[in-house]
Each structure stands twice: as structure tokens, then as C-alpha cells.
Amino acid sequence: MSLQLQVVAITLDCPDPLALAAFYRQATSLELHPKSDADFAGLNGEHGLLIGFQRVDAYQAPSWPDQIVPQQLHICFKTDEDLGETEARLLELGAGKPDHQPHGDKARVLTDPAGHPFCIAAR
């Protein structure tokens, strides 16, 4: 018998929860959770999913693609917009772009302002 679990929250460690929530809010248009504060901020996603950001003292950003500091979590996003334009907008918001791009023109690997790698791909 298989379990029927529903994902209700995904939480990322970071040095500044409100700043990272602001980055993802601008990138996704998700609404800021009303109880967000300097220690924990969240974005309300579809179907009740919360994307959370929790303050961690002495936070170390993941080192990607090597695993000296493991990434722990990797989020992928799809877009209906032009991939290059989406990438440019995310870079303007504060994302970074690692040199290593394993997906060619099909997807891009970026890093959020706290260093977490994430992918964007055309739908």
C-alpha cells in the first residue's frame, strides 16, 4: 500500500529570509506569507504549498557543480516566456549564472542571491 503524502512546504536555509523571499516573490509573483519575519519568511504557492526561507547563522552557500558544500535542494521552474529574456530578468533581480551549464539551450542553471542553484526551462 502506497502512502498518499501531500507536499505542503519546502524550506531553504539562508542568511536573510526576507531578502530571499523578496527575490523569489519577484521571480514567481507568489504572495508573501503574512507571518513572515526576519527569522522565517514564506511565499504562498499553488495548492497550499509554502516555500519557506529560514535564517541560519554562519550560512554557507552551496558550491555548484562541485559538492564541497552540498546543494541539499535544487528547484526547477518552467516558463512560457523566452528563456533568454527570463534569464536576463532573473539576473537583474540578483540571480547569478554559474559557468557550468549542463543542459545546453534547453534549460539554464542559475543561483539565487543566497547561492542555491535552480533551473529554468521553457515549458
Rank of each mutant, 00 (worst) to 15 (best):
A38T: 06
H100A: 03
P62D: 14
L73V: 08
T11S: 15
L73R: 07
Q101M: 00
E87W: 05
S29L: 00
T111G: 07
K35N: 08
G45P: 00
G104Y: 03
Y59Q: 05
R123W: 12
F23R: 04
E81N: 05
D16V: 10
F53D: 08
E92H: 09
K35L: 10
Q72N: 05
G45Y: 06
M1N: 10
L18A: 15
M1D: 12
S29V: 00
T86S: 14
G115Q: 12
H103R: 01
E87F: 06
D39A: 10
A41H: 09
L49E: 01
T79R: 09
P98V: 03
T111Q: 10
Q72G: 02
D112M: 04
P17F: 13
Q4H: 10
K35D: 09
E81H: 09
D99T: 04
G45F: 02
G115V: 10
H100D: 02
H100E: 02
D13R: 12
P70N: 08
D66A: 08
L18S: 15
P98H: 09
T79H: 10
C14L: 11
I75H: 06
D66C: 01
S29T: 03
G94T: 02
R89F: 13
K78R: 09
P65S: 11
K35R: 03
L91K: 11
G42H: 11
D112K: 04
R89I: 08
G96S: 11
P70G: 05
Q71K: 05
L18P: 13
D66L: 00
P34E: 15
Q6S: 15
H103C: 02
V7C: 14
C14K: 05
P17V: 09
V8H: 07
R89C: 11
C76V: 07
A121H: 09
E46L: 05
E81A: 13
E87G: 01
Q71D: 03
L5N: 15
E46T: 03
E46K: 02
L12H: 15
Q4I: 08
G94M: 02
I120S: 13
A61C: 04
A41D: 01
T86V: 12
Q6T: 14
P102N: 02
I10E: 09
G115P: 06
L18D: 15
A21N: 10
I68Q: 13
